[in-house]
Nucleic acid binder design. Structure first.
Length: 794
DNA sequence: CGTACTAGTCTTTTT
DNA sequence: GACTAGTACG
């Protein structure tokens, strides 16, 4: 039984208002997840609603998982039949069942932006559009924006009349959609708008879902775009028991189509809506909250509300300005180390937030030097790494032969001697016959122009067919291992002998683990569902909270999270708010950036440190940026250190502590470096209302080389560390045989590298790392995985 | 057909 | 400064 006494009055109002449209305006840290989960419990326990009739939609998998967990805790029985999923997962689920009604196969594949770009490129080639004049990026953005707004290719073309560039894009858009259809593939945006199309055109399907979803709840409603709005409108059209939760002040995804009007105009769309505001904050201290309120108060397009707290004012907000971005990073590392040693702070209670992913690198390097354990969230997605994408392309080809992008990706990886000309000829044949690229491969012997190359293609086709026929027998684990072995993928990496080869092999190992655990955790683990799950995961979802590590992430990634100690780095005009925002004529962009700042500040529970640097390197250029205008919007009495004021919007200089900063002691170049020209930013920014100083400097050697850590593999990927801890993984994996047929000192033979001597064997999670010194000096010493290396004892 | 080098490109966030 | 895509050459 859920206990509703833990709720405050406003939360209770939100929970007990079950009928009709309801808008919950929930400020940061106001317990909105608590309100939603209790509302679900209340529906089931007190209103006799069948869990099966409840739909809860979120944006991220993480949010969905969290909600599921908390609902499970509240609702004992039947909670598993509540439909809790992200927008995209919800649509996939619907489409897997009914996609055939809008001309797709139900086993369609999902394209990420990488695959998307490949298709766009091909389409441009076909339509003879010069991608130097009109960049793929621009086209992709335009198509995505069109889909977000539910504009189909035909309508787009009509609207583009008279506009040369837009007409070109319209042509690409139309051809792109045709290609996607014939590839039986959908991109992320398609998932949403194809579902909308399905619900709009098929009354039976619509009625089916409208009847099922008696109660619908949408989280982070301020981030919905037009297509998502329409989806919700359709689904909720029957019973109209729609509850949306959001905070217009935390709308930070305009760039991907989010329409803030959806939440601001909710009462216009649903005139009978009840509105409940949650304004009591349970997260942050008074000072932090005051700062957040002061900043966001400068926005005009917002619903009036003010967060308040019963907590004390707490510590003041710390502000520190340093000379360079390097010192900024160093200070953070030093300060976190200090708090850990002196105040017993857990590393896991601290987070460093920044505007752009590129800022992470410098901070990482300093953390390594100071020995601060950390995790970087985001950056390059695990599944978008080359080696992983290659192997996934094999799996996609096996799963859906119509996926041309996947087939073309791997047809010559590893090398099979099938080059560009052959591929072009096959494509030509496929186009002429109106069949897929893969089907054309199957008929390669009939293609006159191909000639001898057919002898190279045939084994490839046979191989794929063998994989397909063996799949039901050996399952996913067997399949991936067979693919790796048969194609010789790992040997290819070893032969390339790149510096990151080891890491790439480890990544492949992780993919295997992922597939093994997927097979164990799912009742019916099919290849399609595996690929689908992979397509819909972002890296943030795998951040592990139990790890005692400082988290490094972008402000966007931080939404929905909270930390005792928060460092906001790069508080400079030009970085945050970004250069583009400052120079843009569109004022709403600055407001969006300010909301991002509001999100950042409100992540902190008790300790917030704001940092900036007088100069930093951005894309090989040294920039001199003034203090962020957002920082100046915080009342000075809330900040310690030297503070910029409204009256004197000049440059706040901060005199570092008198003591010799310990953190510089190992960096001799600081003393020896040629003094850089330091422009007088105070006068500059006063004179030119904070204009951005983007000074090109060629002066002085760059600190970079001496900073770069020698450690080859400094990045701790949260993803991987989590994977290895997944229950059941070790069970399912071979233990490297337990006892290898060889030991340290033995002579062994490798297929490619010849004979050598085993220098050491290191026991890994699932496999042994074997170091071998090969006789052939060309190969020398190599570290390899026993599972793949297939070493023979001599 | 494959490799090695060069030139152009960077927003900014995510499913 | 770093990465990627495209091109020229072997």
């Amino acid at each position: 039984m859920a206990n509703y006494d833990v709720l405050n009055d406003m939360q209770k109002e939100a929970v007990f208002q079950t009928k009709g449209p309801l808008l919950i305006l929930a400020g940061a840290g106001s317990g909105k997840t608590r309100a939603i989960t209790h509302r679900i419990a209340y529906l089931i326990e007190n209103c006799g609603v069948n869990p099966w009739n409840i739909l809860a939609i979120t944006f991220t998998n993480k949010a969905a998982g969290e909600m599921r967990e908390r609902v499970d805790g509240l609702v004992g029985f039947g909670s598993e039949s509540i439909w809790v999923a992200t927008f995209h997962a919800t649509c996939v689920r619907i489409l897997r069942r009914y996609a055939d009604r809008i001309g797709y196969d139900t086993n369609f594949t999902i394209y990420d932006s990488d695959d998307q770009k490949t298709v766009i490129k091909e389409v441009c080639k076909k339509l003879q559009i010069d991608t130097k004049m009109l960049k793929e990026r621009t086209i992709m953005g335009a198509i995505s924006a069109a889909k977000d707004a539910l504009i189909d290719p035909l309508t787009y073309q009509m609207e583009a009349m008279g506009d040369f560039q837009k007409s070109k894009i319209a042509m690409v858009y139309a051809e792109y959609q045709r290609t996607m259809r014939s590839n039986n593939a959908m991109d992320f945006d398609d998932l949403i708008c194809n579902t909308v199309e399905l619900l709009r055109t098929d009354g039976e399907v619509l009625a089916n879902y409208q009847n099922r979803f008696e109660y619908i709840m949408v989280d982070e409603y301020q981030d919905t775009n037009t297509a998502q709005f329409e989806l919700i409108r359709l689904l909720a059209g029957g019973k109209r028991n729609l509850c949306v939760v959001g905070d217009d002040d935390q709308s930070i995804y305009k760039f991907r189509g989010a329409n803030i009007r959806n939440i601001l105009d909710f009462e216009l769309h649903y005139p009978d809506a009840t509105v409940v505001k949650l304004e009591q904050n349970y997260r942050s201290t008074g000072n932090i909250l005051d700062a957040a309120n002061a900043v966001i108060g400068n926005n005009t397009a917002r619903k009036e509300k003010a967060l308040w707290t019963e907590q004390d004012a707490g510590e003041k907000i710390h502000f520190k300005q340093l000379d360079t971005a390097f010192e900024e990073a160093d200070f953070i590392a030093y300060d976190i180390g200090r708090k850990h040693r002196k105040l017993g702070m857990r590393f896991g209670d601290a987070a460093v937030l920044y505007r752009t992913n590129a800022q992470a690198r410098l901070i990482e390097e300093q953390f390594i030097r100071e020995g601060i354990p950390y995790n970087v969230v985001g950056g390059v997605n695990f599944y978008s790494r080359k080696e992983i994408k290659d192997l996934l392309a094999y799996l996609k080809t096996i799963d859906n032969g119509r996926d041309d992008v996947a087939v073309k990706r791997i047809i010559n990886v590893p090398r099979r001697g099938i080059g560009a000309t052959t591929i072009a000829k096959i494509q030509q044949y496929a186009d002429d016959e109106g069949i897929s690229f893969y089907d054309a491969l199957c008929e390669c012997e009939d293609i006159a122009s191909i000639g001898k190359a057919a002898s190279k293609i045939k084994p490839f086709v046979t191989m794929i067919q063998v994989f397909r026929s063996k799949l039901p027998i050996y399952g996913l684990e067997g399949l991936i291992k067979d693919v790796i072995e048969t194609t010789g993928y790992v040997e290819m990496i070893e032969a390339e002998d790149e510096e990151d080869g080891q890491m790439r092999i480890e990544n492949i190992d992780e993919l295997i683990s992922k597939m093994v655990s997927f097979e164990q955790e799912n009742e019916e683990p099919t290849l399609s569902t595996l690929l689908e799950e992979i397509a819909l995961v972002a890296d943030i979802d795998s951040a592990d909270e139990n790890d005692d590590r400082v988290l490094l992430m972008t402000l966007h990634s931080a939404k929905g999270l909270e930390f005792e100690h928060v460092y906001l780095a790069g508080m400079e005009d030009g970085v945050f708010p970004g250069f583009m925002t400052i120079t843009s004529d569109d004022k709403t962009e600055l407001e969006e950036e300010r909301r991002l700042c509001y999100v950042g500040i409100t992540r902190a529970k008790q300790d917030l440190t704001l940092l900036c640097a007088k100069s930093r390197m951005v894309r090989g250029e040294t920039q001199y940026n003034p203090v962020s205008r957002f920082l100046k919007e915080i009342p000075t009495n809330l900040i310690d250190g030297v503070v910029p004021t409204y009256k004197n919007p000049g440059y706040a200089t901060y005199e570092p502590d008198a003591k010799p900063l310990h953190m510089f002691k190992q960096k001799p170049f600081y003393q020896t470096m040629a003094p850089q020209p330091q422009p007088d930013v105070v006068s500059n920014s006063t004179a030119k209302n904070f204009g951005l100083h983007n000074t090109n400097t060629t002066a002085g050697p760059r600190p970079k080389a001496s900073v770069k850590p020698k450690v080859t593999q400094p990045q701790v990927k949260p993803f991987i560390s989590k994977m290895t801890e997944l229950p059941g993984v070790s069970k399912g994996m071979p233990q490297g045989g337990g006892a290898l047929p060889y030991g340290v000192g033995d002579r062994v033979r490798h297929v490619k590298f010849g004979e050598g001597q085993v220098l050491s064997i290191e026991e890994g999670n699932r496999d042994h790392k074997v170091t071998v010194l090969f006789d052939d000096a060309q190969y020398g010493q190599k570290i390899m995985y026993a599972l793949f290396a297939k070493l023979e004892k001599i």
